[in-house]
């Protein structure tokens, strides 16, 4: 019970710290939102001659945009930890290592959730998307975002410690998240009324991915934080 409290305390401190830094600097926000909206707009331009294709591909385009934008948020999240010897301070801080991981995940989750709301509005306007099942869409979004953030927090730290890490992050992360992209797209398609049936199965699969990435990340974060 004490260990759980330590983990929760560390997660709360790290998440609050990360969100405070982002609120203060707005670096990720200034990069992420314009980038994501621009990608949505470019997809709309590219597929506009056939609005049927655009409507068919709405969910896939939405989640692809979220994935690409998540890479920016993850890189920013770890750039903060690697400057001025802060990672050493964090390692010496006495904070629970799984708690540090969960705090990073939570802060990324909040940023991506805000992004998804804005992107959702963009999709509704640009792609003329009609919403069918709210509950399913929310559950799919929560589970997919958790999976993206958990894998991102683990791989973000790994990539940040490698030479050429910022270039490597998308190459390492995006293949790992391909199953999340597929499941989130299929689940969202059902929620948007593009497909019938099976939506909750895709949501459950996303839940499994999220739990697996959270578990693996929490277990591996200590070795990842240590110097090799």
């Amino acid at each position: 019970m004490d260990e759980l409290r330590r983990v929760a305390r560390a997660a709360q401190l790290v998440a609050a710290k990360d969100l405070r830094i982002e609120r203060r600097t707005k670096v990720a926000t200034a990069q992420m939102l314009p980038f994501a909206l621009l990608v949505l707009l470019l997809f709309a331009f590219a597929l506009d001659p056939d609005r049927g294709v655009l409507a068919e591909a709405t969910a896939g385009l939405f989640w692809t945009t979220v994935l690409f934008t998540a890479v920016l948020a993850i890189q920013r999240s770890f750039a903060v930890e690697l400057s001025n010897g802060v990672l050493d301070s964090l390692r010496l801080s006495g904070l629970s290592v799984p708690g540090i991981f969960l705090g990073k995940v939570a802060a990324l989750f909040v940023q991506l959730a805000v992004l998804e709301v804005v992107l959702g509005l963009g999709v509704a306007v640009l792609y003329d998307a009609q919403l069918g099942g709210w509950a399913l869409l929310v559950v799919v979004a929560l589970a997919a975002t958790t999976g993206i953030c958990a894998a991102g927090a683990a791989y973000g730290l790994l990539a940040a410690r490698l030479r050429q890490g910022s270039a490597l992050l998308p190459l390492l992360l995006l293949p790992l998240l391909a199953p999340v992209l597929i499941a989130a797209t299929r689940g969202s398609d059902v929620a948007l009324g593009r497909e019938t049936g099976g939506g909750w199965s895709w949501a459950a699969l996303l839940g499994v991915f999220a739990v697996a990435y959270l578990g693996l990340g929490a277990a591996l974060y200590g070795p990842l934080m240590d110097e090799t």
């Binding site: 305390r9 560390a10 401190l13 710290k17 405070r20 830094i21 203060r24 600097t25 903060v80 400057s83 001025n84 010897g85 802060v86 050493d88 301070s89 010496l92 801080s93 006495g94 904070l95």
Partner: peptide
């Protein structure tokens, strides 16, 4: 153990008190 190295080990984006509250909170 405690260490003061060449680098500050502090979050430059946060204020002095925010840094102190973070690291104090981390060790209880």
């Amino acid at each position: 153990v405690g260490m003061v190295g060449h680098a500050s080990g502090l979050y430059e984006e946060l204020s002095v008190l925010e840094n102190m509250d973070f690291f104090a909170g981390a060790c209880g």
